[in-house]
Lab assay of single mutants.
Amino acid sequence: RGITCLDHENEKVNMYCVSDDQLICALCKLVGRHRDHQVASLNDR
């Protein structure tokens, strides 16, 4: 089922925000508060 995003409840987390040490979803990176932050794919970890 996967872990859902805290900010976007219908989205699954699939990225890690290095700047905030937090799991995020694609919407967080595209339009959310993490858009200018350094992120890594969970597949890279």
Score class of each variant (00 low, 15 high):
Arg1Asn: 11
Arg1Tyr: 00
Arg1Phe: 14
Arg1His: 09
Gly2Arg: 10
Ile3Phe: 12
Ile3Leu: 07
Ile3Pro: 03
Thr4Ile: 12
Thr4His: 09
Cys5Asp: 03
Cys5Met: 02
Leu6Val: 12
Leu6Cys: 13
Leu6Gly: 12
Asp7Leu: 07
Asp7Phe: 09
His8Ala: 02
His8Leu: 01
Asn10Ile: 06
Glu11Cys: 10
Glu11Gln: 08
Lys12Val: 09
Lys12Ser: 14
Val13Thr: 06
Asn14Arg: 09
Asn14Pro: 03
Met15Ser: 12
Met15Glu: 08
Met15Arg: 08
Tyr16Arg: 15
Tyr16Gly: 12
Tyr16Val: 12
Val18Trp: 06
Val18Ala: 13
Ser19Arg: 10
Ser19Tyr: 04
Asp20Tyr: 00
Asp20Lys: 03
Asp21Gln: 07
Asp21Arg: 09
Asp21Pro: 00
Gln22Cys: 04
Leu23Cys: 13
Leu23Asn: 15
Leu23Asp: 13
Leu23Met: 15
Ile24Asp: 08
Ile24Arg: 03
Ile24Cys: 02
Ile24Glu: 07
Ile24Gly: 04
Cys25Thr: 01
Cys25Phe: 02
Cys25Pro: 03
Cys25Glu: 00
Cys25Lys: 00
Ala26Thr: 09
Ala26Phe: 04
Ala26Lys: 10
Leu27Phe: 14
Leu27Asp: 10
Leu27Cys: 10
Leu27Ala: 15
Cys28Lys: 00
Cys28Thr: 01
Lys29Arg: 13
Lys29Phe: 07
Lys29Met: 10
Lys29Tyr: 09
Lys29Gln: 11
Leu30Val: 11
Leu30Lys: 15
Leu30Ser: 15
Val31Asp: 11
Val31Tyr: 08
Gly32His: 06
Gly32Gln: 02
Gly32Trp: 00
Gly32Tyr: 01
Arg33Pro: 12
Arg33Cys: 04
Arg33Lys: 13
Arg33Glu: 11
His34Phe: 06
His34Ser: 03
His34Arg: 02
Arg35Asp: 05
Arg35Met: 11
Arg35Ile: 15
Arg35Leu: 04
Asp36Met: 08
Asp36Ala: 04
His37Ala: 04
His37Trp: 02
His37Pro: 01
His37Thr: 04
Gln38Thr: 06
Gln38His: 05
Val39Arg: 04
Val39Tyr: 03
Val39Thr: 13
Ser41Val: 04
Ser41Ile: 02
Ser41Arg: 10
Leu42Tyr: 08
Asn43Ala: 14
Asn43Gln: 10
Asn43Glu: 15
Asp44Cys: 02
Arg45Lys: 12
Arg45Ser: 13
Arg45Glu: 15
Arg45Val: 08
